[in-house]
């Protein structure tokens, strides 16, 4: 990635956005995900109506917007967990609209859920191992050949334990996932998603209910994911978090993308302030960033 001229304010690091124009539907130089005219309505209510959305590869993109803006619905649509009324989208250059959720995940786009889905009556380690891909032992006939899948299982276990270590869950590995606290479940879900080794990870409010100290280390994880070359798209309401780590922000309101841009673009965007931020939030976010 080149370090071209940065759009606006205090840019010392690489410009991962390669100078994308801060406007709704803006074109990116190297998009991993491109969505076109994606629409979903529930009865009379149009929950999502996104004309165009591109997500730049290797960046952290935040999706923000008021409650009910359609963020989770958009996640569900893009990852094959809900049916669109219309729309096309491609991931890494290939069409994935209409594909069921498991195929989207296998293609390398993995998501977490706003309402955490821990597999409660399974151990934390088993939760993790479920994330590993291409397991021979997950085929019915393969299940009987322990000698074949045993080696793969050991390698996966090593990787799972490394991730649990990173997410401070290592002491819980033998516990039932149902015995974890809400915040720990969030962590587990994120670690489990990473177990699939995705190219792009979509996190629906990963910080909700996680304590501030841990939020800092989670942010560290997310940035290091990006630095490993993964793409992160996340939904979040905490403005400090968003302004702190995002390379790009997409603002959704009433199902439509009303603004896109770098944190500083968004902070000064009149429409966003009216629709979502409100004057006070902007001040706070601004001062926290200084």
């Amino acid at each position: 990635m080149s370090s071209d001229e940065m759009g606006s304010s205090a840019g010392v690091e690489v410009d991962r956005m390669a100078g994308a124009v801060p406007e709704p539907g803006s074109v990116k130089s190297d998009p991993i995900l491109v969505a076109d005219r994606v629409r979903r309505s529930f009865g009379g209510l149009t929950a999502v109506d996104v004309r165009r959305l591109e997500v730049q590869r290797g960046t952290i993109t935040a999706l923000i917007g008021p409650n009910g803006a359609g963020k989770s619905t958009l996640f569900n649509l893009l990852t094959g967990f809900d049916r669109v009324d219309q729309g096309d989208w491609t991931f890494q250059g290939s069409k994935i609209n209409g594909k069921p959720g498991h195929k989207v995940a296998r293609a390398g786009m993995v998501r977490t859920f706003q309402l955490t889905k821990a597999l409660t009556r399974m151990s934390v380690l088993d939760n993790m191992l479920l994330g590993a891909q291409d397991q021979f032992g997950e085929r019915m006939a393969g299940a009987f050949l322990r000698s074949v899948w045993g080696r793969q299982e050991r390698a996966n276990t090593v990787r799972a334990l490394e991730l649990l270590e990173r997410f401070k869950l290592i002491d819980k590995r033998e516990d039932m996932a149902g015995s974890l606290s809400g915040g720990q479940r969030k962590l587990l879900e994120m670690a489990r998603a990473l177990m699939t080794d995705p190219a792009m990870i979509m996190l629906d409010e990963p910080m909700a209910g996680v304590n501030p100290a841990l939020v800092q280390s989670l942010l560290g994880h997310i940035t290091s994911l990006r630095d490993e070359g993964k793409t992160v798209l996340f939904v979040e309401h905490d403005m400090d978090v968003i302004m702190g780590i995002s390379d790009w922000i997409v603002v959704l309101a009433q199902g439509q993308v009303i603004a896109e841009g770098t944190p500083s673009d968004i902070r000064s965007n009149k429409q966003v302030i009216d629709a979502y931020l409100g004057a006070q939030d902007v001040d706070e976010a601004g001062s926290a960033d200084e």
Partner: peptide
Amino acid sequence: SPWGRVIKGIREDEEAVRSLG
């Protein structure tokens, strides 16, 4: 076996299992 792990995962939450491919 890993196959049984997927099966038990489905009992707990099939959406989560689907999201893991």
